[in-house]
Design a protein around this nucleic acid. Structure first.
Lengths: 353, 353
DNA sequence: CCCAAGAATTTACGCATGTAAATATTATGC
DNA sequence: GCATAATATTTACATGCGTAAATTCTTGGG
């Protein structure tokens, strides 16, 4: 076995193509073409280079290559936060889709901060990404930043979008459908559902609230919303759901209601509040409390009781967003035609409702 | 209000410093210095440039700047997967710490795939990052890749490390302490704990298993381990915990035991299995079932019952890892002295045990 | 064996910036 | 108003690689 001081790999280290060229006797431009696509050089050179690369260590400089290529082959992605399994799933879907069509993705995370979001946009532009995919922060986003990106390169919004940019390309979930589905389901199996909302800073949250109201009116029921007040933030979804229902349950309200939560993380807090008050949501339970969420957060099957929810088609959203972006990158001249792709949700009926 | 076709920002777009220099009457090298640090140019030029930048749109080319600077000011981070709130917390801690000391972090995610991990390492080297922080995949990692990185630039491992690299700089949790703490606690309040393990591919999982055994022997108790067989993978922690306990409970085993789970995600699956069998873990419950986890996953306070666990000091780990890396970047000549920072865990006693 | 067509390689230049050294400008003190 | 120092700007070259155009090499046919 090797000792710590003799690593497995101690080939000669070479740091420019020029030197590599000298070391293995193939001209630099030929090497350049080899690294872009090995099939671009003759079989003999290809073998010669491969052999050479086994003797010396060399990787082309990322920046130099990117700077000089006509196209960088990169797309930029901005997401609001990482500490949410919904966004990590979305990001993964996007990365896979991009990889499949030969693009590298550069991810920037806003960390719930508009200033960081703005800086992320600057960074993407300075890297000459060929297109940008952004999931906005919500009301806190600086709209100028988005407009700036949009006016500069192919641009697609994912997951949620501001009311003020109705004309932007968008890929997401049809919340009128998905939330409607859940509302309808709850109204059918339990009493008229109450909506556990969030402070109105998140576009999707607002849209789901509106969708809930619309569906309730359509059903001839009285909409009822709790939880729009309070602080908000990525880290506090569960705490918000718990706090709101703690308050309600403590006063004896909502203990036998159907409750539709704006998303699963809020619902997880809601389940917790119920448990604390000796309540258990579920179709099988006496008492009539029902709790449902939205998104199909990966943990939903494991909560106690398991959480009834409506799934977003995350994979399709990621794939479609990338496809649309690549299409408009290739079109060069912006086609002008706005694309709007809204995927339906799918009910996941589990124990909690 | 603006129409869609007249975005707020439609300043003249300038794409090189040369042109910017012509446009606002300041020499290019002066601009270069301005963009590196505005304080590097005279007050008058600074004002002149600021005014100019309000009229035209320009951002320095990321690649050109990075290519030419002596130091890139970037550190690379490789993490095994994103769909785990532990790693997103760690990543956030690292990003904040890096930002504080003026470094930009480039994150690469292995997606549980050694080939992608290897490519990530290549990418980092090709970007001339000044140091690398890696959380390895586990047994599947290609050790040569790590050795290669380590021999090339300042290198620190975080979270877990292979047995085969005992001499590498490492920052993580002292699992002999943390797991010992939990083992001891369970032994004290309940019966001798059983360890719900994982397939032996994850370094931390293995270390916790060993720590459990050591502590049990120290306490004069018989260690007992379940769940080492089965498939593994980032996406299946909860499913694994659930499946193992489903099997046990179905045969009437472990229904009144103290169970220490290798991590919180496995514990969440365990809680679920218990609920399915009409069992509820907890100090307050009759029956004697107790379940504890490890990590203090953000959802622990919200599970039903809330999950007793031992917290890793994620912030400290992130900060310390970055600090160590930056230190050895600045030292230039590798000091040779290995650094090992292990943080103690902290018991979080909740309902489940 | 020679010539032409085709393929591969080399030459030469370009990319957008950093940076050291040389020069010009401004400020300071008297 | 002048010499000098301090500061700012310009000149000139460097970075590592992409790429079009020019050149060399290979191959096959006659």
């Amino acid at each position: 076995m090797d000792t710590p001081d003799t690593p497995h790999v101690n080939k000669e280290r070479i740091d420019t193509m020029e030197h590599l060229s000298a070391a293995i006797g193939v001209s630099r431009p030929t090497l350049s073409r080899y690294f872009q696509d090995p099939d671009n050089v003759s079989r003999t050179s290809r073998e010669r280079i491969r052999k050479g690369l086994e003797r010396v260590e060399y990787v082309p400089n990322f920046f130099a290559t990117r700077m000089n290529r006509k196209s960088t082959g990169m797309i930029g992605v901005i997401i609001p936060y990482l500490n949410d399994l919904f966004f990590s799933r979305l990001l993964e879907a996007i990365e896979r889709a991009a990889m499949d069509v030969g693009y590298t993705v550069i991810t920037q995370c806003s960390h719930s901060d508009p200033a960081i979001e703005a800086r992320a946009a600057e960074t993407l532009m300075s890297m000459n990404v060929e297109g940008a995919l952004v999931a906005p922060l919500g009301n806190h986003s600086d709209l100028d930043v988005h407009e700036r990106l949009r006016s500069r390169l192919p641009f697609v919004m994912v997951d949620s979008r501001p009311d003020t940019m109705p004309e932007v390309d968008f890929v997401g979930t049809n919340h009128y459908h998905s939330t409607g589905l859940a509302t309808e389901y709850l109204a059918r199996v339990g009493g008229p559902p109450v909506f556990l909302a969030m402070p109105r800073v998140n576009f999707n949250a607002m849209e789901r609230e509106r969708a809930y109201i619309a569906k309730m009116e359509q059903l001839g029921l009285e909409p009822r919303i709790v939880g729009v007040e309070g602080v908000s933030g990525a880290g506090y979804f569960e705490a918000h759901g718990q706090a709101v229902l703690e308050r309600e349950f403590s006063s004896g309200r909502l203990v036998a209601s159907s409750i539709l939560c704006v998303n699963d993380r809020v619902a997880i807090g809601a389940l917790r509040a119920a448990a604390t008050h000796g309540l258990e949501a579920g179709a099988m339970q006496r008492g009539g409390l029902r709790i449902a969420g939205h998104d199909d957060y990966p943990l939903c099957p494991y909560t106690v009781p398991s959480l009834t929810t409506v799934a977003q088609n995350v994979d399709a959203i990621g794939r479609t967003a990338v496809a649309r972006l690549v299409e408009s990158i290739r079109a060069e001249k912006s086609s002008g035609k706005q694309i709007l792709k809204l995927f339906d949700g799918e009910m996941k009926i589990r124990e909690s409702a």
